[in-house]
Amino acid sequence: MIGKLDDYLRFHESALSLRSTRQELLASNIANADTPNYKARDVDFASALKGVLARSEGVAPALTGTAAKHLPGNGVAASTVPGGKVETMPDGTPLLYRAPAQGAVDGNTVDMDLERNAFADNAIRYEASITLLNSQIKSMLTAIQGGQ
């Protein structure tokens, strides 16, 4: 029982931590909208969450193919910058660089409309996760206390 509860809360902890880190990245993109040669960064939330959960369970994340003829992946992140360096978040999740919809003269890849939308979407999802977790904890407390 305690193990299941721990796993359940670990999932929410991982998801909220990842959302928080993504929010910082998006805020950094917005703050650097006028910085020459700044490259907008983001993370693929779904794959990052799967990777974090796999690492917390002690399972190495693996790349899988959808057909028998696919070559096995070598684990290199798709976020390689021109210098060959792969940037990662503190938990090892690879940072991705946005491909600009329209190039800028100064080399900046921040699209303010896209960044604002991603920022607002992430903030709403973060708040929804907090609200859901709060509701579930209250339900557990009610069950423990016997519905007093």
Rank of each mutant, 00 (worst) to 15 (best):
A68H: 08
S14D: 04
V86G: 07
A128E: 10
I130Q: 15
V43T: 04
G3D: 15
L18V: 05
A46M: 06
S135M: 05
Q145V: 10
A104V: 11
K85G: 12
A123I: 08
M140D: 12
S17L: 07
A62H: 08
L25S: 03
R55E: 04
Y126E: 01
E87P: 06
D6Y: 13
M112I: 12
D44P: 02
T64S: 13
S47W: 03
T80Y: 14
Y38G: 09
P82C: 00
G83D: 15
V76H: 13
D111L: 04
G51R: 12
A118Q: 09
N32W: 02
F119C: 00
L49S: 01
S14Y: 05
N134Y: 11
L49H: 05
S47L: 09
G83S: 15
V81N: 14
L133A: 01
R22S: 10
A60K: 13
T88E: 13
T109C: 06
N117H: 13
Q102T: 11
F119P: 00
H70W: 13
Q136N: 11
K69R: 14
Y8C: 08
E57N: 08
E127C: 07
M1S: 14
F119H: 03
T66S: 12
D121P: 05
M89T: 07
N122D: 08
R19A: 02
L9N: 10
P61Q: 04
G3P: 11
S20V: 08
E24L: 11
Y126D: 02
S20C: 08
A128Q: 13
P61G: 03
G3E: 15
L141K: 12
L9F: 14
Y97C: 05
G51D: 11
G58R: 03
K138C: 12
V81P: 11
G92L: 02
A128I: 06
S129F: 03
R98F: 10
E115G: 00
P36I: 03
K69S: 15
P36Y: 02
P90N: 01
L53V: 12
S28H: 10
R116G: 08
E115N: 00
A120R: 12
N122S: 07
A128L: 14
N74E: 15
N134D: 08
G92Y: 01
F45C: 02
R55V: 01
N32M: 08
